[in-house]
Design a protein around this nucleic acid. Structure first.
Lengths: 161, 161
DNA sequence: CCTTTTGACCTTCTCTGACCTTTGTTTTAA
DNA sequence: TTAAAACAAAGGTCAGAGAAGGTCAAAAGG
């Protein structure tokens, strides 16, 4: 008998297959009800089977009308993201490193000029204004958020500019 | 299943769309009757979905012949917004306030969809990860950087999307 | 041992009801 | 007659209940 985590994984992946946008939305409690398990089991499935490295982004919202959304990232961008970023990008990113990366992304057509300027300003030490170990850690977190987001969206529009 | 607050929000925004002046007037009790909820639920909708940052002004009058009026405000100048963030918000900007502003800027064509998503993620508490007075101050600084930057660049490209 | 499963406790967002304030209308007492 | 009082008809506030989802450590499997 396949374990529950595998059953739920298969179920969610089949839902993702059927959805043409590669995005599904579900209720954590409802899903737990279907599989007769405790709700936090769903979180276990999500974190072990739908992680970033495995090519998924998970977003959620609490409260009444809450949901869990699973986004299957396009394959090229996840490869790129993984090889290029998650491995190389450390816990701390100095300003010049961030600027280099952003410039590179711009040259690759992953960022518009305006996005590039915006990020330069936002990641500048004068904006962050934290003391030094913490500042570079924050910059790393911000950069990760950026990379994850731009890997989700089709970049063909961006390149056209 | 969309929550009631979302249903009422959609309803009111569609009324605002249909009105050519961007102003609607309603009876709180009547509206509560339509949606079969308690009247104070309407206040919840108004305060979470029609705030000043989101570009709405709400006026009301009590007593017989009372009413609630919702006015969709024109976008103030970026300079004004900048000062709004700088002064009115005491240098601290909560996440929901930031999201309201960004949504507003997007609706007005000042930000692309991708920039909007990017900023949501960057300004999210899970990304900033600081303790609370400092987190909201950082968010204010980031937001000011954004406002300064988008006020510099011609937005005609943006609007075309 | 490593993976899975569970349950207790937490955070966020929404919804409700009791109680309050303001405004307009009607009744009452001097 | 008329000013005060009472009533009625709005809308406002706020604390607490309810409805999601999240975290973490301990127990259970394999």
């Amino acid at each position: 008998m396949s374990s529950m985590v595998n059953q739920i994984e298969r179920y969610l992946k089949s839902l993702l297959e059927d959805s043409d946008k590669g995005v599904i939305e579900l209720q954590r409690n409802e899903l737990a009800g279907i599989f007769k398990c405790v709700p936090s089991q769903i979180n276990y499935v999500l974190s072990t089977r739908f992680s970033l490295q495995q090519g998924y982004a998970v977003e959620s919202r609490r409260g009444g009308g809450g949901y869990v959304r699973i986004v299957k990232l396009p394959l090229p961008s996840i490869e790129w993201l993984y090889n290029f970023v998650l491995e190389n990008l450390e816990n701390e990113v100095a300003q010049n490193v961030a600027e280099g990366l952003i410039q590179r992304l711009h040259e690759e057509g992953m960022l518009t000029s305006r996005e590039t300027q915006l990020l330069y300003k936002m990641l500048h030490r004068d904006t962050l204004q934290l003391e030094l170990p913490e500042r570079d850690r924050l910059r790393a977190r911000l950069l990760r958020a950026v990379l994850l987001e731009i890997s989700k969206v089709d970049t063909s529009e961006t390149r056209r500019q």
